[in-house]
């Protein structure tokens, strides 16, 4: 089984988001970048399934410029066998999907996994686009993934419940908790990651279909109105008569 795991390079979850003075770009200064937390489920589950089968490969794919390589190496340290970096800024979901589809097709991957969405763009789009470009099923968002031969059984989250879905390879799934416990690299992994292959390839396909004109931060709160704990019922009156939300 050949697994292709797509990872994004995103600001750490503790990052306070700021923008350049013209609000056109995210301000990267002093920001720590990590593997997108949702993608960690995809990566760890692919490694677990490969280990359980006792054969197969896990290739990690990133669309990004050279500054993403430390996180690609981290994915190799966690247990991926090799990596591909498409040397281009991930300008929008469509552009990224085109790169993944081209590599998935060329490498004849059986299972294409990624996180539910990236925590920076929050598109929740790439999985469906890749599936459609390749003409194969997509299961998103998947909470559970098991393989038996060429058949996968997945649990797909729906509003208020879940669906049990079976698909044959090749397929795309976007992953989320509680699929597995994401692994962290150990020392041996870090040492071997240095020499694992990382191939850099140029981008293909059409340009992005969407562009960001401007970023904005949410409006600041006016300040908290404190109610005495002894008189907590007062809060309910305020919620009804002042805020008018109950």
């Amino acid at each position: 089984m050949k697994f292709l795991v797509c990872i994004s390079n995103v600001p750490d979850t503790t990052t306070k988001i700021t923008f350049t003075p013209d609000n056109k770009e995210f301000n990267k200064a002093g920001v720590q970048f990590v593997i997108n937390p949702w993608d960690e489920y995809a990566l760890t589950r692919a490694i677990e399934l490969k280990e359980a089968a006792g054969s197969g490969t896990v290739t990690v794919l990133n669309v990004g410029e050279a500054d993403t390589e430390p996180n690609i190496r981290k994915a190799l340290a966690i247990g991926a066998d090799d990596a591909i970096r498409v040397n281009a800024a991930p300008s929008d979901a469509y552009f990224v999907a085109e790169q993944i589809a081209a590599i998935a097709k060329e490498g004849a991957y059986d299972v294409i996994l990624m996180g539910k969405e990236s925590i920076d763009y929050n598109g929740f789009q790439v999985h469906g686009m890749v599936g459609e470009m390749l003409g194969i099923p997509t299961v998103a968002p998947a909470m559970k993934l098991d393989m038996s031969g060429n058949t996968a059984t997945l649990e797909r989250e729906i509003e208020g419940g879940k669906e049990i879905v079976s698909v044959n390879t090749p397929f795309v799934a976007s992953c989320q908790q509680p699929m597995c416990e994401p692994r962290i690299p150990n020392m041996r992994g870090i040492m071997t990651a240095r020499t694992k292959p990382l191939k850099v390839v140029p981008a293909v396909g059409e340009p992005a279909r969407t562009t960001v004109a401007e970023f904005a931060l949410p409006p600041k709160k006016q300040g908290v109105k404190l109610i005495d704990a002894e008189n907590a019922g007062e809060l309910i009156k305020l919620l009804r008569n002042e805020a008018k939300v109950i």
């Binding site: 929050n122 790439v126 469906g128 998103a140 279909r209 969407t210």
Partner: peptide, 23 residues
């Protein structure tokens, strides 16, 4: 922007050659 909307919208955007914005 539900689990159904996002799953279908992303496939439709490729099939109908449409640009897509979620959320």
């Amino acid at each position: 922007n539900s689990n159904i909307g996002a799953a279908v919208g992303s496939r439709l955007s490729v099939r109908l050659k449409a640009s897509l914005a979620t959320n």
